[in-house]
């Protein structure tokens, strides 16, 4: 079957996306340590811009959303809305122990159980409290690997675990 990916403009867009992903950071109730480490990534020591990674303020421009922190009750609906605003194909990195499971904040009354994945689908988890900037860069690179793999396989479906809800396609149908 001939896929939409084969058109020249598609190929160009995909090439550009993998070479220069734009990221957006959303704080869902973290202690700021993760946010500061993300900003440190953009700074001269780590300088992710040399890899073409660019931080954007708006999720509407972003390919990758980095979510920091446990999801508080108030941020839950806002996180969903921000994720819905992102254009396809979208990828999510859950940062730190809190992003994975709620971390030290697990079970608090104003925190949603189960970390970021209980609200939106997550592609890459980064360990640490907070993760070091090099680990964040590594996670973004791992996410790019997933992006390439998804393009080759025509969607995110292959990563679906048994019993999981269907994922969105990697490509918006033309």
């Amino acid at each position: 079957m001939l896929k939409v990916t084969d058109s020249l403009s598609r190929r160009l867009a995909n090439w550009a996306r993998v070479r220069s992903p734009w990221i957006s950071v959303f704080n869902t109730g973290s202690c700021n340590a993760c946010d500061i480490e993300v900003i440190a990534c953009l700074m001269p020591r780590f300088d992710v811009e040399r890899f073409g990674i660019l931080a954007k303020g708006s999720p509407r421009h972003a390919d990758i959303l980095i979510v920091t922190g446990p999801v508080t009750r108030k941020q839950e609906s806002r996180l969903r809305r921000i994720w819905e605003q992102m254009p396809e194909p979208k990828y999510v990195i859950a940062m730190g122990a809190c992003g994975a499971s709620g971390g030290v904040f697990q079970g608090l009354y104003h925190v949603v159980d189960g970390g970021v994945e209980s609200v939106i689908p997550v592609d890459v988890f980064v360990a640490g409290c907070p993760p070091r900037p090099d680990e964040i860069i590594n996670a973004v690179v791992a996410c790019l690997g997933l992006m390439k793999e998804d393009l080759a396989r025509g969607g995110k479906e292959w990563r679906r675990k048994p019993g999981e809800a269907p994922r969105e396609p990697a490509e918006v149908p033309a």
Binding site: K74, E76, R80, S118
Partner: peptide
């Protein structure tokens, strides 16, 4: 507190107990 927090529940009172919540979609 969050704007969807039920009225009349005050979490810092000693007799208040957290209630389990449903998973996504049911904010």
């Amino acid at each position: 507190l969050s704007e969807d927090w039920p009225e009349g529940e005050y979490p810092m009172r000693k007799d208040w107990k957290p209630k389990p919540r449903t998973k996504p979609g049911s904010v």
